[in-house]
């Protein structure tokens, strides 16, 4: 049915497995076996030879897509504004990073590109080159049929100057090639039980990141027209199929109500151990599909 969500998985979910106990072939197989139709990757992690993979790797990539029937969804990239100590990237250099990744994403068949810009403040305001740099590549994105989507990610909530800035940019340029990616970690409303993150204890954002931002899912209503992609971030689903951190029973009905029909791309980010994520992703797919079926069973 056309008004159903699409289900995908990000290879990022398998961060603790990939490269030591899991190859890209096995990653594809684990994703395909969930019944997902889409695969999301990180360019710098999962593309051997990034940003210019050789023919052998490209053959392997397209062979895996053929064999599993998965479609490329979103490719994650970075604009490393602080590549050098003491001198940030210029607008031209930022645009060149975006061009590099748009080109690769297109070559691999992706429809979305998530660039992560360097920031200039503790509350994660992106380097101001983001707007002119993106503006310079909008024509290329249009030509390649790719939507560039910055992610709205904890500790940045929906109602925040950064998000307002992205929306103003979309309105000002009228572009169809720049939109928002929502990371469902912003809806986390219960603390993480076991999590060792890069952010040290005592940091101002530590409590937010551990206890959750608790953004009200109803806030999605106000930004609905700008949402292009959803990373279904989660941390732990217990043996009773209960998510301990993300209130899916509140998130899914709102996504239905605003008419979202894009991807829910699983992004597991739990304990830093191998062999955990594969089944966690399977659990999430059962949980999300059940909730969607329950939403669909209620007459509109």
């Amino acid at each position: 049915m056309e008004d159903r969500f699409k289900y995908g998985v990000s290879l990022y979910s398998f961060t603790e497995d990939f490269g030591s106990v899991m190859s890209i072939e096995e990653g594809f197989d684990h994703i395909a076996d969930t019944g997902a139709t889409g695969i999301e990757i990180l360019g710098e992690t999962h593309v051997t030879g990034y940003p210019t993979p050789d023919k052998a790797w490209l053959d392997r990539w397209f062979g895996l897509l053929d064999r599993t029937g998965l479609e490329p969804t979103n490719m994650c990239s970075w604009v490393d504004t602080k590549l050098r100590l003491g001198q940030s990237l210029s607008v031209e250099e930022g645009a060149a990073e975006l061009t590099r990744d748009l080109t690769l994403a297109h070559q691999l068949g992706f429809k979305f590109l998530r660039p992560k810009f360097g920031v200039i403040s503790a509350d994660l305001v992106p380097d101001p080159i983001w707007a002119p740099a993106v503006e310079r590549v909008l024509d290329l994105a249009h030509k390649l049929n790719i939507v560039i989507c910055p992610e709205i990610h904890s500790p940045t909530p929906i109602n925040h100057p950064v998000v307002h800035g992205y929306i103003d940019f979309i309105e000002r340029t009228g572009t169809k090639n720049f939109a928002l990616l929502i990371d469902t970690g912003i809806f986390q409303d219960r603390p993480l039980k076991s999590w060792v993150h890069e952010v040290p204890e005592g940091d101002s954002d530590h409590a937010k990141l551990i206890n959750g931002m608790k953004v009200n899912p109803e806030e999605l209503v106000g930004i609905a027209p700008y949402i292009a992609f959803i990373q279904a971030k989660f941390h732990h689903i217990d043996d009773n199929l209960h998510d301990e951190n993300i209130p899916w029973e509140k998130v899914m009905p709102v996504l239905k109500r605003i008419g979202y029909t894009g991807y829910l791309s699983s992004e597991y980010e739990g304990v830093r151990e191998p062999w955990v994520a594969i089944d966690q992703v399977r659990r999430q797919h059962v949980l999300l599909r059940r909730l969607e079926a329950a939403c669909d069973a209620v007459p509109a």
Binding site: W78, G118, V119, S121, E198, V199, D203, D205
Partner: peptide, 13 residues
């Protein structure tokens, strides 16, 4: 490791 998307006071980590 410096991650430019982390807050400035957490670079490097």
């Amino acid at each position: 490791v410096r991650s430019p998307y982390f807050p400035p006071h957490l670079q490097p980590l």
